[in-house]
């Protein structure tokens, strides 16, 4: 669906390139995540994929079309949600959706149904100026679905959402994947990346430092051990065991049988651990 090869990009007036030798592919029906700190080049990569920045070098093909040569019909088949909600503040939510849907020639979703999908059905006639940040984010997200796109580009889609709405958006994106849609997102939220993405790319200083599925990355970078916490004589004790032949480890079996177990966790790495280990930097 998306093929990127030897992508370099430098903003006009800058001496340093923002993206350096980027290579990746995104398959149809895949959820692909760009992770990285601010200024790493995530949004720039997305802007190239949505055709805003065309003066790149390398090959960037979406649905077999080179991005620097695309025409307006490309926008009939993609949906975009920017990081900051860009909506008419003087319009109601329904007026906003109704306006934007008319910019597409193809079949569009019903605004009322999109609002219901993100839990804004009762706020359709409220002006955006009166919306909270989370409500604007949800409206911004559902607007990207107006034209029934094949590919979705979402920049920080869960930023500013409360846990209930965070779960709602994750569920919608998962359903979109099940319906065969391709999703390319950027996020700072490791939980979102872990839950949603089939594969993630860690972008640091314009380069892809790592690219793989969250599961593979966590397993590969973690310890092949399990940690057991148990109570003994009122004190909390911790023991770690190797995962290989765990069932034959006499001490492990004894603790399971004799002690009051409180937690058992395998020691795979978290995505944030991997990021820090790979880049030496924290996510900001």
């Amino acid at each position: 669906m998306i093929e990127v090869e030897k992508l370099h990009f430098t903003y006009p007036g800058n001496s340093e390139p923002t993206l350096k030798d980027i290579n990746f592919t995104i398959a149809e029906g895949e959820i692909f995540g760009f992770l990285g700190p601010n200024g790493a080049g995530k949004s720039t990569a997305q802007k190239i994929l949505i055709g805003i920045l065309k003066k790149y070098s390398g090959r960037v093909q979406v649905m077999n079309h080179e991005m620097r040569d695309l025409n307006s019909s490309y926008y009939e088949s993609i949906g975009v949600a920017f990081e900051f909600p860009n909506l008419y503040s003087k319009f109601t939510a329904l007026e906003n959706l109704d306006f934007f849907r008319k910019l597409y020639s193809g079949e569009t979703e019903k605004p009322e149904e999109l609002l219901a999908m993100v839990g804004l059905e009762k706020d359709g006639n409220t002006r955006i100026a009166e919306y909270s940040k989370g409500m604007k984010m949800r409206l911004n997200f559902c607007r990207s679905l107006l034209n029934k796109p094949d590919i979705l580009f979402l920049d920080e889609p869960t930023s500013g959402l409360d846990p209930v709405n965070l779960r709602r958006i994750i569920e919608i994106i998962t359903n979109l994947k099940d319906a065969g849609k391709t999703v390319c997102l950027t996020t700072h939220d490791m939980h979102v990346a872990d839950t949603l993405c089939d594969r993630v790319a860690f972008l640091v200083d314009g380069e892809i430092a790592l690219i793989d599925s969250p599961r593979q990355l966590k397993l590969h970078n973690g310890k092949q051990r399990v940690r057991v916490e148990f109570r003994e004589n009122e004190s909390l004790n911790t023991r770690e065991f190797r995962l290989d032949n765990l069932g034959k480890d006499a001490e492990f079996i004894r603790i399971l049988n004799e002690k009051n177990i409180e937690t058992i966790h395998t020691q795979e790495a978290s995505l944030e651990d991997i990021f820090i280990k790979t880049t030496g930097r924290r996510l900001l």
Binding site: S72, Y75, I78, V80, N86, F100, Y104, S105
Partner: peptide, 17 residues
């Protein structure tokens, strides 16, 4: 200011339209 133009740029209307 409301970055509406930035969004219109990624619709079939595009900034030129």
């Amino acid at each position: 200011d409301e970055e509406i133009i930035a969004f219109i740029a990624v619709t079939p209307l595009q900034k030129t339209g």
